[in-house]
Lab assay of single mutants.
Amino acid sequence: MIVFVRFNSSHGFPVEVDSDTSIFQLKEVVAKRQGVPADQLRVIFAGKELRNDWTVQNCDLDQQSIVHIVQRPWRKGQEMNATGGDDPRNAAGGCEREPQSLTRVDLSSSVLPGDSVGLAVILHTDSRKDSPPAGSPAGRSIYNSFYVYCKGPCQRVQPGKLRVQCSTCRQATLTLTQGPSCWDDVLIPNRMSGECQSPHCPGTSAEFFFKCGAHPTSDKETSVALHLIATNSRNITCITCTDVRSPVLVFQCNSRHVICLDCFHLYCVTRLNDRQFVHDPQLGYSLPCVAGCPNSLIKELHHFRILGEEQYNRYQQYGAEECVLQMGGVLCPRPGCGAGLLPEPDQRKVTCEGGNGLGCGFAFCRECKEAYHEGECSAVFEASGTTTQAYRVDERAAEQARWEAASKETIKKTTKPCPRCHVPVEKNGGCMHMKCPQPQCRLEWCWNCGCEWNRVCMGDHWFDV
C-alpha cells in the first residue's frame, strides 16, 4: 500500500509500505531520502505521535493516508518512550493509558441525555464484534464512529474520518494533550489543546475536521460531520418502519427517538411537499423529531443533505422563500418566477423588478396576487391545505425507538455506581478489583462488596467470576 509523507509540512511524497511495516522502518526510509538522522524524526498522525514499535496496521493507516513527519531533536526523557523501550505506560498493571487514536474515538455516547454525564468515556458498548469485510486488514473493525456528507465523488452519507490540525499553522502536526470525549470537544473551536510539532510553531489549540472515509482524499478535501447519525450498535428499532437498520439518525429530543435514513428521507420529502418545515429565527429551515417532541429541531442543517441534490435544492429554495415571508415580504405569483420581494408595508401595487435578471417585471396586487387592478379585489380565496398535519407515529413504536432507553438498560445490566462519587462504572470481565475512572475520584473498590478495596476482598473473592 501507499502512504503519503509530508516532511516538515512540505509537499508530500509517496512511500510504499506493508501492513506489518513498523513506524521506525518508515522513519528509516524517510531519513534516507531526506539525509537526516532517523532518531530525530517524529511521525504524527490523527493528533498522535506514533511509536517506533507500532506497525502501519496498528495505527489504522489506510491506503493513501497522509502522515506528517517532522525533524525535531529529542528532548530529555522522550527518546526512550518513542523507541518502544522502557515506557512506564506499558508496564503490566499500570494505570496510565495511551491517548486514544482519533481513528478509534467514539462519540456516540454523547447523544445520551444530559443526566448521563461521564458515560462518553466510561461506558463502552460490546456491539462492535462484526466481522471485518472481505479485503480489510485482519482485526480491523467495521464499526463506524462518525458519518459525514461527502460532496465529492460519493454525493451521499458516508463513514467519516476525524482529523485534527494546529489552529495556528493549519498543519496536521499537532499532538493532542488528551483525546475528545464528546461532540462539544470536536465542534467547539479551541476547546481542546495540544502541542504543535512543526518547527518554530508555538500553536497549542486544536482544530478538528472530518474527511470522507470511503475514498482517498487530499489535504484540502473536508466534509461536514453529521453528528446525529450513528451506527445502530444498540439495535434500536426505527420509529417509523420498526426495522432494525444501521446507520440511524438520533433526534435530540428527551427520548432520543431513532429513525433509519430511508424513513428520514421520506419524512423530509413529505414535509417538504406540504411546505411544513419549521422556520426558526436562529436555526433556519428545519424539522423536529418525527414524533413531534418539543425542543427537538435539527440544529445542523447539513443533515438535510440526505435528501439528495434535487430535493436539497428545493429545500434551500423553500427556506429562502419562507425567510422572505417571515420578513413581511411577498413572492411573485407569476408561474416560473417566484422571486422574493420586500415592498413597503402599505404598498398595494407590487412590481417584480426586472433588474439584474432576477425579476420578471410582472405587476400584481398584494392582496389577491392577481395582475394589478384598481378598486376592490374580486375574490380572495383562503389558501387550502395549509394546516399542519401531524406525522403519524405509532405510540408503541415510539416507545421502542428510544436510544436513551437502550442506554439505561445497558447501564443497569453492566454497571454499578462507584461507592464514593456514584458514577456508573462498567465491568466487562476481569477481577473484582475496580478503579473509578473519574479523575477527581480514582477510588479503588470491590465490585462484589461495593466497598473500598481491602485485604478481605483480596483474599476471599479477588478473582471470582
Rank of each mutant, 00 (worst) to 15 (best):
R6Q: 05
S9E: 05
F13Y: 09
S19R: 11
F24K: 09
E28H: 06
V30L: 04
A31P: 00
G35E: 05
R42F: 03
G47A: 02
D53I: 02
W54T: 06
V56Q: 01
Q63K: 09
Q64Y: 13
V67H: 02
H68L: 00
K76C: 14
G77L: 14
M80E: 14
D87M: 10
R89Q: 14
A92H: 13
A92E: 15
Q100F: 09
L112K: 13
V117K: 15
A120D: 15
T125Y: 07
P133A: 11
I142V: 10
V148H: 01
P159R: 09
G160C: 02
L162I: 12
T173D: 13
L174K: 01
S181F: 04
G194C: 05
S198F: 08
T204R: 08
S205K: 14
S205N: 12
A206R: 00
F209G: 07
K211L: 12
A214E: 10
T217S: 13
A225F: 03
L228G: 03
I229K: 02
A230Q: 13
V244D: 03
V248L: 05
L249C: 03
V250A: 03
F251Q: 03
Q252Y: 04
R256Q: 11
I259M: 09
D262E: 09
F264W: 06
H265W: 11
Y267D: 00
R271K: 15
L272T: 00
R275E: 00
Q276A: 15
Q276S: 09
F277A: 00
G284A: 03
C293P: 00
E300W: 04
E310L: 08
Y318W: 02
G329L: 03
V330I: 13
L331S: 04
R334K: 10
V350P: 03
V350R: 03
E370F: 05
Y372I: 07
S378M: 10
S378D: 14
A379V: 12
V380A: 08
G385R: 08
T386N: 13
A397D: 13
Q400P: 05
W403E: 02
T415H: 12
K416V: 09
N428I: 14
N428M: 15
H433W: 04
P439Q: 10
Q440K: 15
R442D: 07
W445I: 03
C446G: 01
G450Y: 03
W453Q: 03
W453F: 04
H461D: 01
F463R: 01
V465K: 06
